[in-house]
């Protein structure tokens, strides 16, 4: 059937369907492409120590801030601290800026940033949660796993 000979309302419907397909198709394509570029994988301290985390791309790391590990610079806003999974693994995190209010030693945090070749996590952003009893699910999960492996040995 030739396009030109279609009845007007048929043609309109076809145009509409085409428009729908093109719009939603390109939207989905765009969305998936953007998603692939912008997902931030989570790594536990153990995975980072074991070398499973990639060096370079933006990732997230989370764990408990080790008591007594927070060191502040006296000249600027640089700060470093150690996160652990309450077992053996520990990763040094460096950050420059203002830490969230709920950041405290002994509390769970999640940091967004990159791992450098020295195995230090350079954070662009540090998140601590509103509720002090609340633990980020990722961190809680890590602790459970670490604990299981420990007791399973």
């Amino acid at each position: 059937m030739k396009f030109g000979k279609m009845k007007p309302h048929r043609r309109n419907r076809l145009l509409l369907v085409l428009f729908l397909v093109v719009t939603s198709g390109s939207a989905v394509g765009l969305a998936l492409k953007a998603l692939n570029k912008n997902i931030n994988l989570f790594y536990s301290p153990q995975q980072i120590v074991d070398g499973q985390a990639p060096v370079g791309p933006l990732i997230r790391a989370g764990g408990m801030v080790v008591e007594g590990s927070v060191q502040r610079s006296r000249e600027d806003l640089k700060v470093s601290f150690v996160i652990s999974d309450l077992q053996a693994a520990a990763v040094v995190v460096q950050f420059e800026g203002i830490l969230p209010d709920l950041f405290r030693e002994g509390q769970g945090v999640i940091a967004l940033g990159t791992l450098n070749t020295q195995g230090v996590f350079v954070a662009n952003e540090v998140l601590a949660k509103h509720d002090e009893n609340y633990m980020p699910p990722e961190v809680a999960d890590t602790h459970k796993k670490a604990h299981k492996e420990r007791t399973g040995e």
Binding site: A34, L35, K37, N38, L41, F42
Partner: peptide
């Protein structure tokens, strides 16, 4: 993602939303 990759955790950041939503 977690369901498909057997428990790998990710987050989707503001860049995704800005890239898709704004156009």
């Amino acid at each position: 993602y977690e369901a498909l990759t057997d428990g790998k955790k990710i987050s989707v950041g503001p860049p995704y939303f800005n890239t898709v939503f704004v156009p």
